[in-house]
Amino acid sequence: METVGTLPPQLLRMILSAVVVIAFVFMNGLLLGYLERKLAGRFQLRPGPMEVGPQGMLQMVADAVKLIGKQFIIPRQSSTTLFRLAPFLAFVPVGVSFIVIPLSSKLQVLDLDMGLIFIIAVMAFNMVATLVAGWVSNNKYALFGAVRSVAQGVAYEIPMLLSLVTVVLLTHSFSMRAMVLSQSHIWHVFMQPVAFVIYFIAGLAETHRAPFDLPEAESELTAGFHTEFSGICFSFFFLAEYTNMFFVCSIAVTLFLGGWSGPPLPWMEYSGAIWFMLKVYVLLFIMIWIRWTFPRVRFDQLLNFCWKYLTPIALLNLLITALVVKL
């Protein structure tokens, strides 16, 4: 086996992957933060951030520096260890789930044969992190935010998983790579439009995006479960949220929109990754668009919509798909 220096190649690969993933998580956070503020300005007929850099492009960098420099305050009477741990609990799972996302036919850290289950299982940690953050803050708004977030997350996970299972029935595999390869003739979004819509709505709820942003409804709960977190700890929650959005969209692209496939571009080597990113960021644009267009729903409306409409429709869709696949 060929070795680079004295490091075993597998270890080198792991370290490189970790570095690339973490760098990407931070860059994605910066980019999405800028896009969100700029687009919000556009939708509300104002210019958005303009001062720092050309068109305000360096605004997020300035904000990041500000956040790093801020004092980190731990509320009295709350557990110090848990308070310090909560942001990392939120941040680690999103970094880990990157392992199985196929950015292009060659650019993937590891293709597990149960990649989809892996992502879903690791995502379950997010809820634990939210609960811990809400609990240790020792603050009623934070606690309300956490309780809402979990009630919402548990409810919307069901239609989300049911809609993903329909695609698994079509591809006969949990591997993310196989999902993309099975869409070489026709994208799954054309075969499963209902599942795609249900998945996208449930994804909005899972990532706490408006109109389902009740866990962090700023007019009711100040900032929800991360009210008490300041400085770098807040930015970890912020990054986790934006990376989660990226994940929800990249799963949608991988499962429904053909992943990296697309007409070849002049830069042959990178055309897969470019198509993938393009599709993901179009979906992210739609997410941001929805956030600044629709008002927030009430909590009973949110749960009713999930249990009375999304879940039965998703179940029916799954049943019909299973019948069609078997017959």
Binding site: A121, F125, V154
Partner: peptide, 10 residues
């Protein structure tokens, strides 16, 4: 992970 941590503990 999914059932015991993600569901039971939560």
């Amino acid at each position: 992970l999914l059932i015991n941590i993600g569901v039971v503990c939560v």
